[in-house]
Design a protein around this nucleic acid. Structure first.
Lengths: 204, 204
DNA sequence: GTCTATATAAAGATAGAC
DNA sequence: GTCTATCTTTATATAGAC
């Protein structure tokens, strides 16, 4: 790992912010290095190219996020009474925690952009590196919803994924009311998302 | 309106394709005019700027689409027994029809990009020109779901919107099976989306 | 590891001939 | 309304001094 204030880390932080705000094409290396307070040449020195930098922006967050999701799912494997709520919580809560720490909310916007981009290179990178996570959760959904055909299940998972991605990309703007604690607010959000996902997956 | 093969119309068609594939920043005026088979200078002559061209790409589809949605909603106003399904169908079916005609599916991808962009200029343009549509539908949802608090309703509408936008942006890739007619396939898709939306909005 | 300077390509936009 | 030619800015990337 990199030390917190290192050049590499500052570039990654600035990249996350500017990619969230202006997109991968919209944010130039000039804006990016200026925001990070480093030299223009530093990106190519440390990452090789803009493309590689983009991959590292994803890796920095997704490695930990998906490890947490799989750990939460593994924990449930012991419990033979695990419910759809439990499995969805294992998927949603780590992302929700990330979106409330530091610039995690910005990253969720970057992720939502990646979804909308339909860019083949990026999709392949995400699929190769993190595809196994979705596959494990899908298997678990199939187990808990045996009445659904394969096609029906895929439809619902796709719709739920779209809903969650969209919602989490907006977290930078959701205003927590002053009389609600940070903890309570996060818990309410989790409940909204989980209940919606349960309804979307399991309706008759 | 423009004649179908006019320079203006060909630019709009090429822009829709390239914006869907590469985004607003990713698609350059050079690529765009080359694809349209027109001169580079034609964009600035006919539209004034790239920004104005982007607005026209939206107008060309959204004017008709949202008019159809409101017309379908108005038709329901007579029926005092109208259901949530009816209202959702009024919102979803016109978009679904658009996405199956000509390059309509490409436009749905452009629209999904616009959602993910979080670009203030674009959001303001869409809100100013088409915000009244969402407001009318929201009022209708509130009437049909009186048990939900305002906050709860907004959450659910936001999640459903994300799901539908995501789903419709993928229509270019959904493979219709050979033994299913185009008509049947579209009807099945409509049913998937409407049932999902009903469940997401009205779960207890 | 960081800097300046620069190479090279491509962007949006416009002027002026036809 | 369409063309060529060009202006100006900005992009990614790299070479070579420190």
């Amino acid at each position: 790992m990199n030390s917190p204030g290192s050049t590499k880390e500052r570039i990654l932080g600035a990249a996350e912010l500017l990619f969230a705000q202006r997109g991968f094409d919209g944010a130039s290396l000039r804006q990016l290095t200026a925001a990070a307070g480093v030299n223009l040449a530093a990106v190519n020195y440390h990452f090789g190219s803009k493309e590689k930098l983009i991959e590292q922006v994803f890796r920095r967050r997704l490695d930990a996020l998906n490890a947490q999701r799989l750990a939460a799912l593994a924990k449930l494997a012991d419990d033979s009474n695990r419910t759809l709520e439990d499995v969805l919580a294992a998927y949603i809560r780590p992302a929700l925690e990330l979106s409330h720490e530091g610039n995690g909310a910005l990253f969720m916007r970057v992720l939502a952009r990646a979804f909308a981009e339909h860019d083949d290179t990026l999709r392949q990178f995400l699929s190769e590196n993190y595809g196994h996570v979705m596959r494990q959760f899908t298997a678990e959904f199939a187990r808990l919803l045996p009445q659904l055909s394969k096609e029906e299940l895929y439809w619902r998972i796709d719709l739920v994924t779209g809903a969650l991605t969209h919602a989490m990309s907006g977290f930078g703007m959701i205003q927590r009311k002053r009389d609600v604690s940070e903890e309570t607010h996060r818990e309410q959000t989790a409940q909204h998302l989980i209940r919606f996902a349960v309804a979307g997956l399991s309706h008759p």
